[in-house]
Design a binder for these strands. Sequence first.
DNA 1: GTCTATATTAAGATAGAC
DNA 2: GTCTATCTTAATATAGAC
Lengths: 196, 196
Amino acid sequence: MSTTKPRGPYAKGAERREQIVQTATDVFATEGFEGTALKRVAELVGVKEATLFHYFTGKQELLTAVLAERDRRGRELGSAGENGLAALVPVAERNRGAPGLTTLYAVASATANDPGHASHGYFQDRYARLVEELAADIGHKQQSGEVRSDVAAESLARLVIAAFDGLQLQWLYDKNVDMAQGLGELIGVLLAPQAS
Amino acid sequence: MSTTKPRGPYAKGAERREQIVQTATDVFATEGFEGTALKRVAELVGVKEATLFHYFTGKQELLTAVLAERDRRGRELGSAGENGLAALVPVAERNRGAPGLTTLYAVASATANDPGHASHGYFQDRYARLVEELAADIGHKQQSGEVRSDVAAESLARLVIAAFDGLQLQWLYDKNVDMAQGLGELIGVLLAPQAS
DNA sequence: GTCTATATTAAGATAGAC
DNA sequence: GTCTATCTTAATATAGAC
């Protein structure tokens, strides 16, 4: 039997993959996900449709890659290893500048509830990880007395993440809603040192 | 020119309309909205498909009617004219018992963001009304000293509604999440009398 | 009881998924 | 290209106002 040596993606392939994700991000954000045919993405990249299927099993998986990439960039906004609270407001501000992508995320996070949806696992993991990370950050601040400790860190984390998603939804319906300010107010009140 | 005298719906028609909404609610909740053909709803009601189109312009409008009816019932849970805070936790508890309907709502609230979606106006009005009502309730409690007044009533209202929607989404991905408890904690902290 | 708006359906056009 | 779901049109039956 012949031994197969997996070499991983060539540099060119990795680049092409990124290019596809970037193009798909733009076109999904401007023309919608359902409304966009993969053929359109392929044209803009300058490859045949079949090439897309080489990198992604299907349209849904490409969507997952687009969402994951957006997520990854969001993490970079939390400057220097800040995985917790400090990253939230910058991400909200970025999202304000990208309503199309934000809609894409909001729709996907709701529809991927169906266990049969290709992004179901992605969102399940994402929320679990977000809660875990934020709860850890909050837990440290509770021990140092920066944050009230009469409510469990995980509960506080879930509430902050929930408010983030919910404010985003309200903003999508009314662009006068100030997500960053709302989050700031929540953090100021909810995560203040204990009162009594 | 002949004057037409509209009589409004007959008793039979009003009843049938309700029956259709109720049946659609059940089948959309169990089999999904996209996954359900109107023919299926018609069969369960015991009428022909064309009858549904007599009452609703299209499938999307039927969905809007389903969502509005769910909303109307939610208001009844706020016992005796309570339009504000007191209704939130009971509604969360009701939703826990109806994951299908809750998914339907979550998906619709995100997808109806598109101004071309039939339910767009419905959700836009709904959020505006919810914020207004809750802010009024909170405003009264601020004046009586029951609630901190260093944050605007409308901001607090938006945050509570946002947390409601966001916790619901997290619960859809992880049924261990306790929406009612989370909301209770939020209300306890966010809407406590002012500290200093 | 008559009359007309409302309720219902039959038959088919159109559009989108596979 | 076939099939299925959405929606139209047009025609009939019924409810209820007068």
